[in-house]
């Protein structure tokens, strides 16, 4: 347990002392500070726009952070020859990988919470200036943020998986972005293919689409921005399923990553 904790702490320090991330977080805060100014461009819906922009900004920043961290999690250690000194300590590669993942996941969560707090201040300020007829649903905004965090933790596990099979930075980086885009759209494509359009397509391609749909993470489930902005209700049962899905998906990917990483040669 000490070994695991030390790995998490080390990963956390790595992230906190990374200058690229400092730059990203500075940009993030700037983006959130710009929200009130941008929100006033909408004369009718200042509050809604400020929530939209805040959540989008946070989501974008978390995406950047996740993809960078996930893709560089193993790559950097290989590139800088850290692995020869770390994996030769009495730590199993699985524990090392889990420590890495948990460190990154904690950081994504921390990032989301900090930016969320900043956004909360900004949303209160801009909605106080031009009150809307829809009340602010803080609980749903929090839920949307939580779902976003879960989504990006899933994406981090995808990035880690790719980086355990690759020696380059670019492959896991772009593969994560690709999975992110595919995962965000897969639900719509699935419904499209299941409907009238699918009947014209031929059963093989439909089956292929459906297989991909089950294989890649379904990020559409984690998009709770509309409920957060307009207060549309969310089903608790669905939320339970969504979060269980996230946990299981991460666990499976980490399990597979542990297998590939343990078999890897570091000559």
């Amino acid at each position: 347990m000490d070994v695991f904790r030390a790995t998490v702490v080390m990963t956390f320090r790595w992230i906190l002392r990374d200058r690229v991330l400092h730059a990203i977080l500075a940009v993030a805060l700037l983006m959130i500070l710009l929200v009130p100014a941008l929100s006033t461009f909408s004369m009718r819906q200042v509050q809604e726009l400020s929530i939209t922009l805040s959540l989008s900004a946070i989501s974008f920043v978390l995406l950047m952070v996740t993809v960078l961290l996930g893709a560089s999690s193993v790559w950097r250690d290989i590139e800088r020859r850290y692995l020869a000194s770390v994996l030769t300590l009495p730590i199993s590669r699985t524990v090392f990988l889990l420590g890495r993942f948990c460190g990154i996941a904690c950081f994504i969560a921390l990032c989301g919470v900090v930016l969320g707090a900043a956004a909360a201040v900004i949303i209160s300020v801009s909605s106080a200036q031009y009150p809307s007829d829809i009340p602010i649903h803080w609980d749903k905004i929090g839920l949307a943020l939580l779902a976003d965090i879960a989504k990006y933790i899933m994406l981090a596990s995808v990035g880690i998986f790719f980086s355990t099979v690759s020696t380059s930075f670019y492959f896991p980086f772009f593969a994560s972005i690709g999975i992110y885009l595919a995962g965000s759209g897969s639900q719509e494509v699935y419904e499209y293919v299941s409907g009238q359009f699918g009947k014209e397509m031929g059963s093989v391609s439909v089956a292929l689409f459906k297989a991909v749909y089950y294989l890649i993470p379904n990020f559409a489930a984690f998009d709770l921005k509309v409920p957060a902005i307009y207060g549309v209700p969310v089903l608790p049962a669905g939320l339970g399923l969504t979060f269980s899905y996230a946990v299981l998906y991460c666990a499976i990917l980490l399990c597979v990553s542990s297998y590939t990483f343990s078999r890897r040669q570091f000559p």
Partner: peptide
Amino acid sequence: PFTTYMRQRPVALKLGYTPA
């Protein structure tokens, strides 16, 4: 059940706001 839920979940299609 997750994918079933996803297919049947309430969807509020919203266009939302585009900045000027």
